[in-house]
Write a protein that binds this DNA or RNA. Structure first.
Length: 200
DNA sequence: CAAACGATTTTCT
DNA sequence: GAAAATCGTTTGG
């Protein structure tokens, strides 16, 4: 799996791109599932109006973002959806990367059961809320290290060509004014597990 | 202590 | 295409 050094790099935008094609593995409730990351968004700390940690905002919820890179930041959105982020950079620099979409690999039957569907469709793991539910991730996992046995990320040698990485604006952050225009969203060209949300 | 609000998804019209 | 679902966090009184 990816080592600690990977998560402590300074350039969160670069890490967000490097995560494409990596494998997210969860071992939750005794059930193992994995999927290839195909869509990410970078949240670049205190100067990023779209980030929960903008302007150094530090609360009980966002405290996890200030941890040293390599832990999970999971929070509840709209009272319904658990959104999974990867914290990066050194301690007290609140960078994070939202995982928005992934392509199912192992334990597809388990993921379908968690989502309550009987057929495999792209909506199984497209979109941050759906992905978290399929992988069994919830707010109990916030702060968990990504080097542990419950949640971790592997490099299985999948190489993504630079021309297959598409850049765009982030989704659902219109409130961030000019920072909403930053090209901090990355996804794989033509992958059907990329969320359908608007934001090109 | 009360009220508003999401880094969204699903369902209904 | 529009609106509901639903609750912890954050902010204001």
């Amino acid at each position: 799996m990816l080592n600690e050094q990977f998560y402590i790099q300074d350039n969160v935008v670069q890490i967000a791109q490097d995560l494409l094609g990596k494998i997210l593995v969860t071992n939750i409730d005794g059930q193992t599932t994995s999927s290839m990351i195909v869509e990410t968004e970078a949240y670049a700390g205190v100067n990023d109006k779209a980030s929960h940690a903008y302007n150094g905002r530090r609360t009980k919820r966002t405290e996890t973002m200030y941890a040293k890179g390599g832990v999970a930041y999971v929070y509840l959105c709209y009272g319904i959806h658990h959104l999974f982020n990867i914290v990066t950079n050194i301690a007290n620099v609140p960078h994070a990367i939202l995982i928005r979409g992934a392509e199912p690999i192992d334990g597809i039957d388990i993921m379908m059961k968690r989502r309550g569907v009987s057929t495999l469709k792209n909506t199984l793991t497209a979109g941050p809320g759906s992905l978290s539910k399929a992988m069994g991730i919830n707010t109990n996992h916030t702060g968990l290290p990504l080097y542990g046995s419950d949640i971790f990320i592997e490099d299985r040698g999948i190489v993504i060509r630079p021309e297959d990485i598409i850049k765009g604006t982030r989704v659902g952050v219109a409130y961030a004014k000019q920072d909403a225009l930053l090209p901090y969203r990355f996804w794989l060209n033509d992958n059907k597990y990329v969320s359908k949300a608007k934001g090109l």
